[in-house]
Structure formats: C-alpha cells, structure tokens
Amino acid sequence: MTTVPSSSARQARVALGARLRELRKEAEFSGRELARLVGFHYSKVSRLETGAQSPTDRDIRAWCAACGADDQAPDIIATAHAVESAYVEFQRQTRAGMKRLMTSAVPLYERTRHFRIYEHNVIPGLFQTAEYASAMLSFWIDFLGAPNDLEQALHARMERQKVISRGGRRFAVLLEEQALRTWFGTAEVQAGQLDRMLTVMRLPSVSLGVIPMMSERTAVGSAGFWIFDDSLVCLETPTASIEVTRPQEIRQYARMFEILKSSAAYGPDARALITKALDEL
C-alpha cells in the first residue's frame, strides 16, 4: 500500500481535522480543555485540527469519548486510514511485474463472501476468458511500463477465478450493455467472451444483470466499482486503485448498486442482450 500523493493527503488531513474540530466545538470545549481531558499537549490538538499531524486510532477514540461522540469513532478511524492509504498506485505495484498486481488481491477475494460488481465498459476480471484477459493485460503492461510478465500475470488472473467455484460465496454482477460491446482483442476473442458470459449466467452463485443502452433509467454510474462484503469498495482509474473503507461511503456505494439494479435486465432478457451483441459481431 502506498500513501496518497502529498497534495491529496494534505487536503484529506485538513478535512479530517475539521471534523475533529467540529466535535470539540459541539461539546463546547476549548482546545486546552480537550487536551487536558484526553491527556494531550494542547499544541497537539491544534496540529490535529489543522491537518499538520495525523491522528492515531487511540487519539480518535479518546477525542470522541471526551466529546460524547463514541458512536462516531469507527467512521472517523476508517476515514483516517483512508487518508493514508486510499490509493494503490499501479506503476509502483507493477514495477515487479503485473503478476504481483494480480496476486495482491487474492487474500481479499478469499475472505469475501458477497461480491457486488458494477462495470460500465469492461467484463469483470473474475469472468474473463484467457484470450480477453491477455488482450487487456497486454495493454496495461505497455501503458504502465511494467516488466513484460504477461504469461505469469495471465496465469495468476485465471487462478484468481477459482474463487467462483468455491462454495459459500455470492456474486451480484451489473454490466452496462456497453461492456458487452467494448472489444479487447479480435472479433473471435470478443465472441468467446460473450459466450463465456452466457455460461456464467447459469451458475447458481451468480446473479447477472445487464443495463440496456438507450433506455430510461434512474441513475448513471460514473465509474465501475466492486463492493467486497460491507468492508471495502474498490475503483480503478488509469493509474491507481482507489480503496474506500469509510462505512458511510460504503453504504452509499451499496445504495448506488441497488439503484442501478432497478434498471437492469435479468434472466431471459439479459441473455437476449448478450446474444444480440454476439450475433452482431
């Protein structure tokens, strides 16, 4: 895990400090009074509130307890963790090759029981064919300037898919119809990938919905995201993976997922959209 780039980290720490200051003011304490209650030097209160210093988990619990806001401690602690480790920069992770990026998520996949996946322009990695995944990985290896370990990275991605066949897990997948029509590789590769999705739909652990293009809808997802149980949300940009751990934010992503589901086609209707894209190849 890498830290947030300095400017982003500073802004996030300032926002976190402002939240701590609001708690203190709501409790009607001066900075010196709060410092005395929690056993800080009074200057530390100022450093935390201005974002000059990051609070520890113990600092946050003590602060919230003194202000009568124990219930807010878990969310503020999650925010503080996110400030320090919200971004995982791909270029740093892939210096040792793409395989490392593929294997780093294995423990997360192994412990997750409920996957909620929304993608707007790509088939999720868990359901990609080897050919489709190879075309994608080839691009990213070149784009990120990573060592060319395509064969090893591809093997790692395929191994990661074994989590689908293990019991006790549910996979709720939402795809925009555009994801079915965005090619990676040749027409034959795309056809094989769409055929794979028709097979995936039959798995009892998988619920696959497709949001049709050119249809009335209540919401638009601005980016693809994955929700792992109720503990983590991951989004990917061209240069980094963003990890969301704040309970309040995770609930917002879960809410967005439910809203998007209301516009999706399932069962025979979803199959018809996949088959139509396949026929049009």
Rank of each mutant, 00 (worst) to 15 (best):
T3P: 00
V4T: 15
S7N: 10
R10K: 15
R13A: 13
R13V: 07
R13K: 14
V14P: 00
A18I: 10
A18W: 07
E22A: 15
A27C: 05
A27H: 03
E28G: 09
S30Y: 01
G31I: 07
E33I: 04
G39H: 04
G39T: 02
G39Y: 03
Y42K: 11
S46I: 06
S46L: 01
R47Q: 09
G51L: 04
Q53T: 12
T56L: 03
I60R: 04
A66V: 02
D70L: 11
D71R: 14
D71K: 13
Q72W: 03
D75T: 12
I76T: 04
I76L: 14
V83Y: 06
Y87K: 09
E89A: 11
F90H: 13
R92L: 14
A96F: 09
M98A: 14
L101N: 14
A105P: 00
R111L: 10
H114W: 12
H114D: 13
F115P: 08
R116H: 06
R116G: 01
I117G: 08
E119H: 11
I123Y: 02
I123D: 04
I123V: 15
P124R: 04
P124G: 03
L126M: 06
F127W: 07
T129H: 05
T129A: 05
S134T: 10
A135I: 10
A135T: 10
F139M: 13
A146H: 03
A146Q: 02
E151H: 10
R157D: 08
M158R: 06
E159A: 15
K162L: 11
S165Q: 09
R169M: 07
R170V: 13
A172P: 01
L180Y: 05
A191L: 09
A191E: 13
Q193S: 09
L198R: 12
R202I: 05
R202P: 01
L203V: 07
S205F: 01
I211V: 15
S215C: 08
S215Q: 13
S215M: 09
G221L: 08
G221K: 07
G224W: 00
G224F: 02
D230A: 12
C234Y: 12
C234Q: 15
L235G: 01
T237A: 11
T239M: 08
S241F: 08
I242E: 10
I242K: 07
E243N: 14
V244Y: 12
T245G: 05
T245F: 00
R246M: 15
P247F: 10
Q248W: 05
E249G: 03
R251A: 11
R251C: 04
E258S: 14
I259T: 15
A264Y: 02
A264D: 05
P268R: 12
R271E: 15
I274H: 08
I274N: 07
T275S: 13
K276P: 00
E280G: 00
L281W: 02
